[in-house]
């Protein structure tokens, strides 16, 4: 246990009866602390160690210094995976304005059926990504898919959306947007409901139209929610895996142009027995997540208004 000589001693002096309730507190925390130690903290240290080692064919690993990191930084597939992942991140952020607009529409005073709309928009988010992936692969199907059928009505010759390297990543990104709209909608709806109606009424009296009210009242007052969701969205997108894994079969010619950092990690760690480089890749991913999150927190002062 960590020791804090000064504070601990001070506490002991001030409140002599503490030890008994302290024991209870430790008992309360013990189960989860053990779980964290075994399944989270120890593995974290181990992955850090793995990232500097090479795994032997017959088990056991040997220290190889920074070689894994060198390999990761020089590997062309990592560069492509990074670019794809950034594309997913940008597309993920597009979800936010979509959700905000829907939230603003739902916030119309006296509008009926809000609960029903909200339920429908949230439906894709509760459905498991594995099922969503199969469903959209079917819609995107080049020969029999509904999307190409509908496009043919207006004379457009559709593509093989998910096996064409030029469109596959966008096709997947679109599904990500579709399935997350409802999630952000709930957060924005809660944020918008918290904005006092008087503000809108006062703005209306001053002659502000719906667009102006949205830009001048809704957006600034919603900015804490927008900031929070953009942080969540970036973290989620940087870890994109499920949909890509399900939608792209191993023989898909567009595999390289859709692979994310995490699908590459999975391939290295569990299919190609390259645990060392995989561990290094995972650490670089964490650094990327930390860096982008930090950047967002730094930039927040410029545009987030806290009431």
């Amino acid at each position: 246990m960590a020791v804090f000589p000064s504070t601990a001693a001070a506490q002991a002096r001030n409140k002599p009866r503490r030890p008994r309730s302290q024991r209870a507190a430790y008992l309360f925390i013990a189960p989860i602390a053990i779980g964290f130690a075994v399944f989270y903290i120890w593995p974290l240290l181990q992955t850090f160690y793995f990232s500097f080692t090479s795994f032997g064919v017959f088990g056991g690993n040997s220290w190889i210094g920074g070689e894994n990191y060198e390999r990761v930084l020089q590997d062309v597939t990592v560069g492509r995976a990074l670019l794809n992942t950034l594309l997913y991140t940008v597309m993920g952020l597009i979800t936010l304005p979509v959700s905000i607009i829907i939230a603003e529409l739902l916030n119309r005073p006296g509008l009926r059926g809000v609960a029903i709309y909200r339920a429908l928009y949230f439906l894709p988010f509760v459905t498991l990504p594995a099922a969503i992936g199969l469903l959209w692969n079917w819609l995107y199907n080049g020969d029999y898919g509904l999307i190409n059928e509908v496009l043919s009505w207006i004379g457009i010759d559709g593509r093989y959306w998910v096996s064409d390297p030029t469109t596959a990543a966008y096709a997947i990104g679109l599904v990500m947007i579709w399935s997350h709209v409802g999630y952000y909608l709930i957060i924005f709806l809660a944020g918008i409901k918290a904005i006092p109606r008087d503000y809108y009424e006062a703005a209306e009296l001053d002659g502000a139209g719906p667009v102006r009210r949205f830009v001048r009242i809704t957006l600034p007052l919603l900015s804490p929610s927008i900031f929070f969701t953009s942080v969540i969205s970036v973290i989620t997108s940087l870890q994109a895996f499920d949909l890509i894994y399900i939608m792209m079969s191993q023989r898909n010619p567009a595999l390289g142009s859709t692979q994310s950092i995490v699908t590459l990690f999975y391939k290295w760690a569990f299919e190609e027995n390259a645990q060392g480089p995989a561990a290094a890749l995972a650490f670089l991913l964490m650094l990327l997540i930390a860096a982008l999150t930090f950047l967002q927190f730094r930039l927040q002062k410029r545009w987030v208004h806290y009431a």
């Binding site: 989270y40 593995p43 995490v262 995972a282």
Partner: peptide, 10 residues
Amino acid sequence: VPSQLLILPQ
């Protein structure tokens, strides 16, 4: 900590 960092040792 992203889950990918833990999954190999887990």
